[in-house]
Design a protein around this nucleic acid. Structure first.
Lengths: 199, 199, 199, 199
DNA sequence: CATGAATGAGACTTCATTCAT
DNA sequence: TATGAATGAAGTCTCATTCAT
């Protein structure tokens, strides 16, 4: 169908943007780089997006909304709080595993850049933290989690641990093989729920 | 001391830079903004610093070396592994408490911007992670910490939790009163060492 | 007729162009604006016109040729020189009265923009001045008009007075009711022929 | 004095702008053209002016305020109304005689472009028309000018005649020697006050 | 040391025009 | 005829850095 072409082009540009943003960072990326990578004319980027920033915004929103959905879904499931945290961690880690460039862009350029683009999306970002905090406080209410650690505090620790892990993979500070990804999901939950202490 | 004491002007410029970097972010800060804030002539910034980036670098290096020293020092102390982690967490949290702008700049513009400036300092940044990892592996060797959680993995989780906490304070996502700061030190260690699970 | 009647689409586009040129000015008008206003596909404008400038040119030429015809016609009539000037003034004023947008475009974007588009049409524009000058010099030859005022000078004054009047209406500097239009024709001739002086 | 240099540079840029605006028109002038003509670096234009448009605005305001002063001054003098109109016409014509490029720019790009830049200055432009209108109505009150021609109408005719004259010179439609300039002042007043009719 | 004018490369964005369908 | 996606040249403005005084 000819009608689908426009959508394809958009996709093509978004995919190219992920690549170059991941490679060079948003600020060092010129619109020309996106167009070159996408193998389209310069102006076409502006045919589909109002600005370079909008391209990044769209990448973030599309992906982040999936995370929010995943959190919301697991929240309402019958799983134990620990399992729920495992679902969240798993979703984020798998997002990285299957599209490391996209997650790199989202983390480096948006969630960890709250001073610039992140500011725009602070509410969305916070929505994720709040969802995790609800999982924790539900666990507290159910007597599964201790009550002397504030749920929003716990949420930050949990999310921070995961994101730092991804950062470590992204910048090659810790090994990131498929086995590591599989294990990481378990470990991060184990760390946060059971703690480092030897029993 | 081998290093000459920075002149007062230098200091004046660095302090101004912290303010404007914290306020506007590094990229949105023009050299003129720094000079204005420092109440100093435009060109003087270039008299003392080779480039705008160098100003940021210096801010980072000065502060980060203190953290590395603190980690090294506690590593060699007689404290328990848990206490050592508490020292590290406390140092970072106090750094924020006593100079939130500076820590905001360091976190937002350097450690969490590993794609741009962070890249330059990746080794220094990693040195901190490695120091924390050594504390953990020492604890594992001493039988205090469990061994099924990799020490560098644990280090990332621990540091990530702290940094995310600071992010939360910086962007107003979680409350940050003096009492919170005091408590946070305890809580972050408790979370990572003991875990969230109810005993 | 040698010229084929413009299709309806052409007309539709020209009419839309008048509206948007009048509203936003030629330079601030994008081809897309014309197409939108005409409720026509973007590319269709280029199907009927070689360029955006050509649209304006056509608007001008169509209208201006009517003025030239009117001048030529009255020149050859039996009327007095004063009456002839009245016909010219009346034609221009009525053009504005019945299609203010079109006259606004012609005056603002062409005759008063001799540095850009006007340059292209300078000869046509001058043809009108020359026609008016001939009316004046005929009047001088007939002893009706004084001879110490050069006819081309008088022509400029006469045309300039009328155009300034239209400008005043266009930009709301002087009131422009139907009565004003009626009166203006008389007044402009009276002013130029009889002068302001009290007798 | 070193302190005067900045002002000189500003002047240098303004003078260059007059030349290129007159030659190519405002829209066809690139900022680079101004810088080249002024023989200064590109960026210096932006050091002194906020935008290309501001350069034009300044040229207009500087010149037009002189006209407004001249009108105000003659208004309050003891001269006859006819003499006052002569002063106004003389001022405008002399402005053209001594700096034709500047007047060309002001007329072509501002007063006759009320749809674009003129809009910004409409009030200033109108102030001149109103001043002239006051001269006329004073003359009417004094019984020197006829009362059946509205003063603002007369003002528009008078100013329009002068401006059209300048246009004619600017675009080479009527001869513009020094003798013509001298004569024009007399003629335009004679035309408007005494009229074309043979006595 | 100190000043701030001067430089000029760089990048975003616009939009007239073309073209495949 | 009609459509609107695709092209890419052009030009404004920014701002880090240099330099003369």
């Amino acid at each position: 169908m000819a009608r689908e072409a426009p959508t394809e082009r958009r996709r093509q540009i978004l995919d190219a943007a992920v690549k170059v943003f991941a490679r060079q960072g948003f600020h060092s990326t010129r619109v020309a780089d996106i167009a070159d990578e996408a193998d389209v004319a310069y102006g076409l980027v502006y045919h589909y997006f109002a600005s370079k920033e909008n391209v990044l915004n769209e990448l973030f929103v599309q992906r982040w909304s999936l995370l929010l959905e995943a959190i919301a879904e697991t929240e309402q499931s019958e799983a134990t709080p620990q399992e729920k945290l495992g679902v969240v961690a798993g979703f984020i880690i798998d997002s990285y595993r299957y599209d490391p460039d996209l997650m790199k862009v989202i983390i480096v350029e948006v969630t960890r850049a709250a001073n610039s683009f992140g500011r725009t999306h602070l509410e969305q970002i916070n929505a994720a933290y709040l969802g995790i905090a609800r999982i924790v406080s539900d666990g507290q209410a159910a007597g599964v989690f201790r009550r002397d650690i504030d749920s929003s505090f716990a949420s930050m620790s949990f999310y921070g641990a995961i994101e730092q892990l991804l950062s470590g993979w992204i910048f090659g500070l810790i090994p990131g093989s498929d086995r590591d990804f599989d294990e990481a999901r378990e470990l991060v939950v184990k760390t946060i729920c059971e703690g480092l202490n030897q029993r």
